[in-house]
Design a protein around this nucleic acid. Sequence first.
RNA 1: GGGCUGGUAGCUCAGUUGGUCUAGAGCGCCUGCCUUACAAGCAGGAUGUCGGGAGUUCAAAUCUCUCCCAGCCCACCA
Length: 914
Amino acid sequence: MSSEEERSEDSQARELAKTYDPALTENAWYSTWLTKGVFAASSDSAKPAYSVLMPPPNVTGMLHMGHVLNHTIQDVYIRWRRMAGDESCWFPGADHAGIATQARVEKLLAQENLTRYDLGREKFLERVWQWREQYGDIILDQLRKIGVSCDWERMLFTLDESASKAVSEVFIRLFDEGLIYRGKRIINWSPLAQTALSDEEVESRETQDVLYTLRYYPEDAAEPLLVATVRPETIFGDVAVAVNPDDERYRDLIGTKVRVPLADKLVPVIADEYADPTFGTGAVKITPAHDPNDFEVGQRHDLPMPNSINPDATLNELAGEFQGLDRFDARKRIVERLRERDLIEKEEEYMHSVGYSQRGGEAVEPFLSDQWFVNMKALAAPALEVVQSGEVRFFPQHWTKTYEHWMSNIRDWCISRQLWWGHRIPVYYAPDGSFTAARSAEEACAKLGLPEDTPLRQDPDVLDTWFSSALWPLTTMRWLADGQKEQTADLAKFLPTNLLVTGPDIIFFWVARMIMMTKKFKGVIPFRDVYFTSMIRDARGRKMSKSLGNSPDPLDIIAKYGADAMRFTIIYVAPIGQDIRLKVDEKTQDIATMEIGRNFANKIWNAARFLLMKHKEVIKGVAREAHEDLPTYRYDLTDSWITSRFHETIRDTQRALQEYRLHEYAGKLYEFIWNDFCDWYVEMLKIRVAHSPTETYRQEMVNHAFLIFEGILRLLHPVMPFITEELWHAITDVDSSDSIVRAPVPTLDEARILPQETAQFRTVQSIVEELRAMRGQMNIPPHERLPITLACPDDPTSELLKSERHIITELARGSNLHIGRGLAKPAGAIATVVNGVDVFLTLKGFIDLDKEKQRLAKEIGRLKGMIKGTAAKLQNEKFLANAPASVVEHERGKLANLENTLAKLSTNLEQLAE
RNA sequence: GGGCUGGUAGCUCAGUUGGUCUAGAGCGCCUGCCUUACAAGCAGGAUGUCGGGAGUUCAAAUCUCUCCCAGCCCACCA
């Protein structure tokens, strides 16, 4: 017997446990879903397509709360659209994460006292693949725990062969078009990873340093030229000192030479606008190999560009006695030596920003080297256009500004990495130094016009991981994967995708580049809507991170609260476009907020228990069915009201989802299920069943409750997939092979939204609430039943309330209930007014005159205040002249109502005083 | 330096185009309840000069200006 059969038999037979235990359902349902293949999508389907690309998590990654938010949002949309009748396809994948993965394996090698060079490229890559086989799926297994409904058959790893083909092809095409080029430039060098980085991989941080003013002595003068620097260790790469051509102070020095301290070499003083006369001394040392600005100056003046630093950030042979020292040690030693030789004019504390590697955290070294670049300007223009025109929409919209700014000031992208783990650059070099990009060495020979057997050398570098990520919309849909086919069934069906959900931190890394590449190679946008998720922070507003110890393991949260609870909570508390703060217990890393979702799940669970109990009691042998249709029997007010509220909730939740207001989707469900369905409807069902005149009517009432509840489950399923599946099987007679995953969303019927009945029902509700409040304020013990009198202003109201007499009596704990037009206040009663109805509660011996006077006086005070405000408005001629008629009308009605209530309460107060 | 967010109850936040807003919800707090599903629950209660100031308007939490505070992003002068 398979697990799903077991469970389904089980849920029919057993009583539901008193509290919901997610551990008993979640894992079992996920494997059932996989077995049944309910997440699979087909490009052959006639249904409209809906697709989402999963941002491929790094194979080195561990699940964190950011993933939870991100994937829950995607899953909500995928599940919702699937139920709404779309061919809903979520493309999953994983990213090879060049630097991170390589670093991970190198660290393991280090434990064996090996480096990657000891193994050589091929053996090393074998080791990395082994590692990926062993650990690379952990993150995906973790994602399954939260219930993601992606089509796992379509799983793609960014280093899979099919992806590689597309990556090479794109490189070659861009190279042939001149959009990829090789150049000697200053790039950001990571001394830890020993590779180039793109500008985006560098983050700048304010750093406290010392600004040294050094003495550069002219060849034949005793007065030194003063030059300020924070990096004295780079003086061995100095090739000039620049001053501003308009700077009077140094005009005479231009063209002369000065001696670089310690380096013992003479460099020219040059004139360049780059030197800012107002900063420091106005003279700046030029070190072209170690500073991007200096590099430009060097180019303008055709200066040599000696490199004085090694790839591991130690100083090289140019540094003489300091050779081999790490850059920061060298700085200290050089400063000491400069002091000894009296070459420092002054030292001052200095705050400035320094670039750090986003991954390794070390200070990045500006480094002159040969690298590969993508010319971004040509690619950016169409990608900017589609966002500005609204073809691609950003949510929240304000991110378009950030995007526009970046795209309009775009700089070329350094794509080569001095790593081994990645897509190798398909460029071949001939012995004569010529080179080209090609699909094979043979093709390269042909392109270069060389004999077929010319020994070529392939470029040793690999591509930035984000280069392959940029092609994600294409590679997931097997572009060029099988026999170089430009068009595939998936591309035809699912591109452009509908939604991308990602963090705003990768808007440049990923979102922009996917738009560029997809536009470039397919001529279409990759996705229509981009939803930028909130950042998840701790209670103090800090990012969640392992090192801070404020990053709970979602698996622990799931174990404690359940995946549904976690999913619901995170959607419920996530405001669009703003960061989420979660209170994390410093010791246990628990997130108590998850109780919201857990309690909610438990509430739903118990509502189901109650319904099943009533079913047993009332319907007995009658089958429970899952239908779309609502019952045909004559509604009473309660049924009309709950049906109306249900359809309002359908409307509101669908609209919220369409507008990417997920917290509202969750909020509306929470409100409806807890407040309306459980607190009122279920409570009233108890009373209505007890007082129902006929068996049939009782059965219809209970049946109706089942239908509403079944609809609730389907409405809730996208955010709480597990419990809704479990209960769907428990409360309906659907075949055990069916799944709510593929059930339809409840159909909105606007005609069932009934404002009048809703208003009538609210009157009943308000009366009950007022009576409860009066009891509370008078400290009436809950068991004490007291007479209630409702004096109605007219017959319809009286009729309405009479038809709800049982409900009012029971919910307000009445002994007997008098309803009628213009009834007098009974002796010993306290009073309030609801929509013109005098509500009297006879207290008998419980009355406390002072308390009641206080209560009335307070209410009268409030009313008077409101009357004063409203009356002032209505006396204001400008208001009457300018405000729309409906507003004036409303104010008039409000005033009348307030005055009526005030009059009644004042009378009551006077009577008490007598 | 440029840009983007946000500042509403003790905490986290709603509040859509200005008018049913003398401002709501959840959590927390206080009171009373093991009421025929749920104490992970039920009923009731207290709590706010809507960051400060000015302006527009018949009408401002909502629009404009300005200042203050917090956070993020981009660009950076050694």
